[in-house]
Structures are given as C-alpha cells and as structure tokens.
Nucleic acid binder design. Structure first.
Lengths: 141, 141
DNA sequence: ACTTGACCTAGACAACGCTCTAGCTTTTAC
DNA sequence: GTAAAAGCTAGAGCGTTGTCTAGGTCAAGT
C-alpha cells in the first residue's frame, strides 16, 4: 500500500529527483507521508495524482499552472468553478496545439512528398542542378 | 525587395532579437545580405525560409535539428535522402505529439465533464462534503 | 544642431524544468 | 561486520530558447 520513492519513480517514469522536485514545488495534492526514518511513503492516491500531473505536463501545462490547480484542490470543496475554468482553458490550449501541429504536419508532409519525388527521380543521376534551391519556397506563397 | 530586420520581425512575428539569434545559430539557409552600413537586408527567400523555421519550431523541432537541416540544404544537391530522413523523422515526432495531446485531451475532457456535473448540481448548495476528494482518481484506474 | 528611432555587436541575464552533487543516514544483502 | 543500495536535504548546475543591456553608429526630421 505504501510505496517508496524509487518504486514511484519506476511506475510513473519520473526520476526520484523529479519526484522530490515536484513535491518541493507544491504539485502534490496532499502531503506525502513519511516513515519514522524520514523516508517518503507514497499512497496509491499520490501515484494517481502524479499520473494526472504527468498528463497535464505532457500536454504542455506549465508547472505553475499545475500548482494553481493543486492549490484549488487542496483548499477543498467550494472552488469547483475555478478548477473547471482552469481545466477548460487548458483544453483550449491543447486544441490549439493540436491544430498547430496538424498545420505543421501538412506543410512537412508536402515537403516530404516533394523530396520523395526528387529522390526517386534522381537517385543515381542528379538531374536538377540548382544547388541552393530548396523545395520549401512554396511556403512563402 | 529588401527588408529591414524590423520589417521581417513584423511579418514573421519573431522579435528582432530572435532574428539575430537565429542567424547566429546558423538557422538561415543563406547569408543575410548587408547594406554598406552593416544593416541586414532580408530577401523574400529569407522570409520564406524563416516561415519554414517557424513551422518547424512550432511543431517542436529543436533549433539544433533545424540547424542540421539548414546545413544539409546549404551543402547543396546530393543529400536529399538525408533531408528526407530528417523530415520523416520529424513527421513521426509530430504524429506522436498529436497522439499524446489527444490522449491528454480525452482525460481532461473527462474531468471537465465531471466538474460540470458537480458545479451544475451544487452551485448554491454544496452537497458533497468530501473536501479532499478530487474527481481525478479515475486516472489511476 | 539636436533629438529620435532603427540598427549594430557582444555578452549578460532569465525562465523553465529538471538533474546532479555533496555530505550524511539507513537499510539490505552477504 | 561490512559494503552496496537507497534514501534524505540543501543547493548548485545545466540545456534550451530566447530577451535584454550597454555602448555605439547612422539617417531623418525639426
């Protein structure tokens, strides 16, 4: 039931350093328990919370915002609307990122296509002799 | 036809600082021309190239990788296969990012839904009195 | 003449998110 | 009993990606 920092590191993928760092930064919803000797004992809840933090991070939420969210939760019931606002705003942020990535993907896929043609056409025989021409100018158009 | 650094900043959205920084970092395909007084003069091609760099950056390509790509292009024809490999690898990277974001989006949308219910149900009357309970435990399941 | 504003270089500084070190204690395995 | 492994704190260090400052040049407007 109680996990050591090493075990938590293993199953979250975070380093033990990062785990201590997150704790210092106030990202953990509730105080991590300690053994008599001072070692941290993580509960399953702690691990669950960390998993959520990792999802937040992996979608580009800054530690600072995670801390804000954590603080809301720590304050307990009554600020659900605030939490919701924060979550929604992050949702929008994710959506924007996805769009941006998709747009970049389109552009790059286009470039890839062009290069594929070039490479297929000229593998052994280098036909087009425009050294500094880059199939990327279509971007400016 | 020739643009000042300020004009380029305006139309790329990069700061003049960033433009000089990018140049120092070797991200520009061809040497930026200078006026007799030493001021930079950007061509439309330069701006096009910068637009591409921005797309790369916005999809998470590190400056270092952009520099590698730039170097390939600078070397001229003959390494198209290398450029293609780099682009493809970035394509995969983008795809992975999109998936990660979509996964995070699912999780967060789920949380949002739960909060919406809670907020709708208990706006004025705080019904559920479990202060430290966070609708996020479902993550660990 | 003089001020304003855009530009130049070189280099310091900064935010973010960890990561690592030093120096020490405790636990575990042999 | 002893050595290796794991933990602790406090704080330094670092890679990335810019941003900002200092100190100076240059051109244009008033």
């Amino acid at each position: 039931m109680g996990l050591s920092i090493g075990q938590v590191a293993e199953r979250t993928g975070l380093s033990v350093h990062a785990l201590r760092f997150y704790e210092r930064e106030g990202l953990l919803a509730d105080q991590v328990r300690r053994e008599s000797n001072g070692r941290r004992v993580y509960s399953e809840d702690d691990v669950g919370w960390l998993a959520m933090c990792i999802k937040f991070r992996s979608s580009g939420m800054p530690l600072d915002t995670i801390r804000q969210y954590t603080e809301l939760v720590r304050k307990g019931a009554g600020n659900e609307a605030d939490r919701l606002a924060l979550l929604r705003s992050h949702q929008e942020h994710i959506a924007a990122q996805i769009e941006e990535l998709q747009e970049a993907m389109r552009v790059i896929t286009h470039k890839v296509t062009i290069y594929e043609e070039h490479v297929a056409a000229g593998t052994a025989s280098c036909l087009w002799t425009t050294p500094n021409e880059e199939p990327g100018k279509e971007l400016s158009a």
